[in-house]
């Protein structure tokens, strides 16, 4: 069981994740209207690239956009959740060790205490975002079951991974649960709203180009959309 989950199943999960995400990007670009969506970046490549990069960078930087600044608490939760889900797993000692053992390559890792703290903060941020969904009428009205599911799918590997790391023994049930939920998470990404892993960049770049070329960027005011 353990061998299967960390062997073929892990490879399959990664393959579905990577190919699925690539397919989402291709589908996005190919599905654009030539006339309405693609003219700006075809004709004004330099401005378009500038607009796209600026838009992405300011939004993935904590408090880099006006919207993040006017909602400081939500922004904090947003960044903590994403740091826990993206940065921590990539630089976690236990994960890098596995890669190192199997492929002989490694990279710097986070100190254990920091990784623990970031994981707990990410879980807390996720819980906060969930509670906010029900507490605020303006968020409750737009919340769907899908939104709850993807939060559950995303938090599960964090919770199970955290518990597993702090349990004695090597092949405990929590570790197994961590691997299974992690794989579910990877597989779910291309097929759910989690596809924003790549589509965020498409959508953000698109509005950056739109404002950067068509809607004002040519007049050179350095506003970030």
């Amino acid at each position: 069981m353990y061998a299967f989950l960390t062997g073929p199943m892990l490879w399959l999960s990664f393959a579905i994740f990577v190919i699925g995400c690539a397919w989402r990007v291709v589908k996005y670009v190919k599905g654009l209207s030539w006339q309405l969506d693609r003219v700006p970046y075809g004709y004004y490549r330099e401005l378009a690239v500038k607009g796209a990069l600026k838009s992405i960078l300011h939004w993935i930087t904590p408090y880099g956009s006006r919207s993040w600044r006017v909602k400081p608490l939500y922004a904090a939760a947003f960044f903590l959740l994403h740091i826990g889900l993206v940065i921590v797993p990539l630089f976690l000692f236990a994960h890098v060790m596995i890669v190192s053992e199997r492929f002989g390559i490694s990279w710097p890792t986070l100190p254990a205490g920091l990784a623990d703290a970031l994981t707990i903060l990410a879980i807390a941020a996720g819980a906060f975002i969930l509670l906010r969904r029900f507490a605020l009428p303006e968020v409750r009205i737009i919340t769907t079951a899908h939104d709850l599911w993807i939060m559950a799918i995303s938090l599960a590997p964090l919770v199970t991974g955290f518990v597993a790391a702090h349990q004695a023994g090597e092949h405990n049930g929590w570790l197994l649960a961590h691997i299974i939920t992690g794989e579910i998470w990877l597989i779910a990404i291309p097929f759910t709203k989690l596809s924003h892993v790549v589509l965020f960049f498409c959508s953000r770049a698109q509005i950056g180009v739109d404002f950067g070329v068509k809607r004002g960027g040519q007049r050179g005011r350095g506003i970030v959309w």
């Binding site: 909602k71 968020v139 737009i142 596809s195 965020f200 959508s203």
Partner: peptide, 9 residues
């Protein structure tokens, strides 16, 4: 429509 995170911002 699909990726709207329903965050209410």
């Amino acid at each position: 429509l699909d990726v709207c995170a329903r965050c209410g911002l």
